[in-house]
Design a binder for these strands. Structure first.
Length: 114
DNA sequence: CCACTGACGAGTG
DNA sequence: GCACTCGCCAGTG
């Protein structure tokens, strides 16, 4: 029985589904919002299990450095992720990194003040 | 049981 | 800001 595991995975997917267009979130951030602090790896694990036909905005999840984390950086998947983000208006710098300062998704529940 | 790996990250120097 | 270490957890051999 993998009921517990599946439940956690669903919670992760639920958070990812909330990321708005044109914004990004880090693995650690998703983990935190899903109630799994310090377990960013589980988020990566869950996303790697996603089927190709998934409608989830998985491409909006990047690492804490603002970069794309895929098994093979040269692989087509990482290119797809970059293209999709650029189409939403998310910009990459000359080091292939996104400015979290500018594009990070900050949910109301996590926003203390302005 | 142990070693290693993988869509990660905080802490330290 | 970079390089390293250590912590996390699941899956595999």
């Amino acid at each position: 029985m993998n009921r517990v595991k599946d439940t956690l995975r669903r919670r992760i997917y639920a958070v990812v589904a909330r990321i708005p267009r044109g914004r990004v979130a880090t693995y650690g951030q998703i983990a935190w919002l899903a109630g799994l602090p310090n377990q960013a790896r589980l988020v990566g694990y869950a996303l790697s299990d996603l089927p190709d036909h998934s409608r989830l905005p998985w491409h909006r999840v990047i690492n804490a450095k603002g970069g794309i984390s895929l098994r093979s950086d040269d692989g087509p998947a990482s290119i797809v992720q970059k293209i999709r983000l650029e189409q939403e208006g998310v910009a990459f710098d000359d080091q292939e990194r996104v400015s979290l300062r500018q594009f990070r998704w900050m949910p109301r529940s996590a926003r203390s003040k302005h």
